[in-house]
Nucleic acid binder design. Structure first.
Lengths: 229, 229
DNA sequence: CGCCTATTTGAAAACCGTCAAAGTATGTGG
DNA sequence: CCACATACTTTGACGGTTTTCAAATAGGCG
């Protein structure tokens, strides 16, 4: 992957909705603070417990953010892609990263040092408001997933996860069964059993490493109401 | 509960850490935008699905924020008390409240209209940064709880909940078994069974409507490691 | 083709939820 | 002050969902 010229960092930042309110001068000021970093497949971007250092915007690639329970079970908090911010919780609290982040594909990231970002935000409240907006959305998601995990069965949780992913990525979801299980908070075997039924009911289609949604409406019914009888 | 004078609203706002960076002039500007509202026990402050209207700071009292799963099971997202903000997710995203909020005790709240707050934040980036900070903390909590719900057993989840509450409120926790169960994502019966064992092991003490932590260290061991054998 | 990883199925057991019933504190009205 | 209503707590038994352990099948890549 070729190195980017400084001018390109401006473009990368501009393409993120967080910085869309900035003019060209402000963008290049920020770009001067930014560092490009590249990661290969499966490389870690940060580890749970690391000290906070970089605020990141993903330029290209996909990143998996996850946590391990005390039992060692992996829980996937989110996948992030182009234009999304990464590692923000640690930065704004000045505490260690609460989760790990790993590149799923070749990934190019633009990083800004904690101090530089904070000082920039203090001078650009529109950007701060945009970040508040994104954080609010992530908090909303997290609360919905909490309620789901606590109150729904695996079938309904899986349906909800597939819908959420579909809203972001379309009808073809590039995830293994293991990854989907780790997002739904279940095991791969249970996830497979449930999804096999969905396949038999023509609700999804199954390809190695992928899930293709055939009938989003039925998925929605499943995720919202109990099958009842 | 007596009505407050306008001057008092300044004091209320000042006591919240979110507005601690403001000087007296700025505080009274904000106080002029603020409306005092009072709620009696069990009164709803907002409902899941309501349109976003108020950004709230709690002056006195305690508020329960919760969501119902499709099965009707209640999940308690958080309890908030004096000085904490409430309803912020809906405000910053301009979407319906994603949960309901109910006064647990007599509660006095200072509310600021969405538009007024946003315009104030655009002129006071320090406050915006503070809010980012609080949102970051809440997101961190939510992610930890997600990972716990997905990967830990009820005993460990309960231990974790009790520790989290204890960090905020001290060793005496004013919650019923039902409320604790609703925070841990389990049923009251299971919560009671687990807590009965904790009581027999002298880790907690039991009073009607309260839980008293006797041995936080053992709780920590429980929450972090599996009992193993 | 052979290896590695992903997917699938089966059987048994653990954990937890559900249903039922009884016991115990708190407050209220007579 | 007692009797009653109400809400919270507790215990038992049962069953269902989900995890765990084990093993087999299948797809992709060198």
């Amino acid at each position: 992957m070729a190195k980017l010229q400084p001018a390109d960092k401006t473009q990368i930042l501009k393409s993120s909705s967080i910085f869309s309110s900035l003019n060209d001068d402000e963008l290049s000021e920020l770009a001067n603070l930014a560092t490009e970093r590249n990661f290969t497949v499966n490389e870690f971007i940060f580890w749970d417990g690391d000290g906070p250092e970089w605020f990141n915007i993903i330029d290209q690639g996909q990143v998996k953010v996850f946590k391990h329970s005390s039992q060692g079970k992996e829980f996937i908090i989110a996948f992030f892609g182009t234009g999304e911010m990464l590692g923000e919780v640690a930065i704004f609290e000045d505490k260690p990263y609460p989760a790990s982040a790993q590149a799923v594909t070749e990934t190019r990231i633009v990083g800004i040092k904690r101090i530089d970002l904070l000082s920039f935000l203090a001078r650009h409240p529109q950007v701060a408001l945009k970040i508040i907006n994104v954080l609010g959305g992530r908090l909303r998601d997290a609360h919905r997933r909490l309620s789901d995990l606590a109150g729904e069965r695996v079938e309904q949780r899986l349906a909800g996860i597939l819908l959420m992913l579909s809203a972001k990525l379309g009808l073809t979801l590039p995830f293994t069964r293991q990854e989907i299980a780790d997002m739904a908070g279940t095991t791969i075997e249970t996830a497979i059993r449930v999804m096999s039924q969905l396949r038999q009911r023509k609700i999804i289609r199954s390809v190695r490493g992928k899930v293709i949604i055939l009938d989003a409406e039925k998925l929605r019914l499943l995720s919202e109401g109990p099958p009842q009888v």
